[in-house]
């Protein structure tokens, strides 16, 4: 697995719960464990082990933790680049949802080694969207749901969403766009001027 995935989990835990919590999780998962590097590759089992240890540490369900991770990736100021890169995909939230079909290619264009599952988007009505996540990466659909909820906030849209995950990582997400202009969207400038 590309290191960016476990590195994101690590950043999420450290920024949300502190470095001590991360240290305990790491030791619980593997006494020899040091830290994840974003640009390395890791065994899937190592990442799953750390995730399981994190659920025990915080007494949280895996699905809740993964969804929180997705939200963190967009809404935490330390992760502003993720949010920015996603905002390039669409001018409105509906636009953004439809563009999710390109997400895997878009990510691969930036980091060829990071292969995210393909997402197929079906617009059922003007306000209902079905997202089918192809199998391959367990938990991806749940993280994506957290991402989508945070992106909806970013675009100022009000949505209802849920996610059903299969054992092989395939997932189905349902989104209902209740109000595309519920709140003022956060600004997005084409050029990054921090």
């Amino acid at each position: 697995m590309h290191g960016l995935v476990p590195y994101s989990i690590q950043s999420f835990v450290i920024d949300s719960y502190g470095a001590d919590a991360w240290g305990r999780i790491g030791r619980a998962a593997d006494p020899r464990f040091g830290r994840f590097e974003a640009m390395q590759t890791y065994d899937d089992a190592v990442v799953e082990g750390v995730l399981a240890a994190a659920c025990r540490e915080f007494n949280k369900r895996r699905s809740d933790l993964l969804e929180d991770l997705g939200t963190y990736l967009i809404s935490n100021p330390r992760q502003r680049i993720t949010r920015r890169l996603l905002r390039f995909s669409g001018d409105s939230f509906a636009d953004f949802l439809l563009s999710l079909e390109d997400l895997s290619d878009r990510v691969a264009l930036a980091i060829p080694e990071l292969r995210l599952p393909v997402v197929i988007v079906r617009q059922k009505s003007s306000s209902c969207f079905d997202l089918r996540v192809e199998p391959g990466m367990r938990g991806y659909g749940l993280v994506l749901m957290g991402v989508l909820r945070a992106m909806a906030d970013d675009y100022g849209a009000l949505v209802l969403s849920d996610c059903i995950e299969g054992p092989d990582g395939a997932a189905t997400l349902r989104l209902e766009l209740l109000d595309p202009r519920f709140a003022r969207p956060r600004d997005f400038e084409l050029s990054d001027r921090p």
Partner: peptide
Amino acid sequence: VGELDLTVTDFSATDQTSDILYLVEA
């Protein structure tokens, strides 16, 4: 482009300028 005060909507849907900007940032 930052100095030109342009936004995504200033480009046509087929114009890949914003994709280039995405790639630059990525």
